[in-house]
C-alpha cells in the first residue's frame, strides 16, 4: 500500500498500461477502459473471448475510454470476430483512431466489424 504523507495521496506509480473490461448493461457486449498494448493484451483477449458468451446480435464493444490500441490488439479483434458464429456481427463504438487506420491497412473490407464513431 502507498504511504501517503500529510494526507495527500501519492502519485500512482507508472507500471505499464492497464485495461479493465465490464459487461454492458443495456445490450450484449463489453465496455473496455484503458489501453491495449503488450502489457494488457491478455486481458483484452480474455474480454474478447467472453464476447461469444453474450446472446444477441450484433455484439457491442464500447471503446470510448480506450486511449490507444496497437496492431496486435486490432489483430485480436479481427481474430475474435472471425471466430464468432456465422451471421454474428460486431459493432465497435468510438474506438481510438488507430483502430480504423490499422483495419484499413490490413483488413480492408472486413465486413463483420462495424465502426460506430
Amino acid at each position: 500500500m502507498d504511504v501517503s504523507l500529510g494526507g495527500l495521496p501519492a502519485a500512482p506509480p507508472r507500471h505499464g498500461a492497464r485495461l479493465e473490461a465490464h459487461p454492458l448493461s443495456e445490450r450484449p457486449g463489453v465496455r473496455v477502459v484503458g489501453e491495449v498494448t503488450l502489457d494488457t493484451r491478455r486481458a483484452w483477449q480474455e474480454a474478447l473471448g467472453r464476447l461469444a458468451q453474450h446472446g444477441g446480435t450484433p455484439l457491442h464493444v464500447e471503446l470510448s475510454e480506450v486511449a490507444f490500441i496497437d496492431v496486435a490488439g486490432v489483430t485480436d479483434l479481427v481474430t475474435a470476430v472471425r471466430s464468432l458464429p456465422k451471421g454474428q456481427r460486431l459493432v465497435v463504438h468510438r474506438p481510438p483512431p488507430q483502430m480504423a487506420r490499422v483495419l484499413d491497412i490490413f483488413w480492408p473490407g472486413e465486413g463483420r466489424i462495424e465502426v460506430a464513431p
Binding site: T37, L38, F68, D70, V71, A72, P97, Q98, R101, V102
Partner: peptide, 20 residues
C-alpha cells in the same frame, strides 16, 4: 491529426518489437 496518430502507432510497434 492522422500524422500524430501514425507516430503513436509506429512507435508502439517498434518499441514493442524491441521489448520482445
Amino acid at each position: 491529426g492522422p500524422a500524430l496518430e501514425d507516430l503513436a502507432l509506429a512507435v508502439a510497434e517498434l518499441t514493442t518489437n524491441s521489448v520482445i
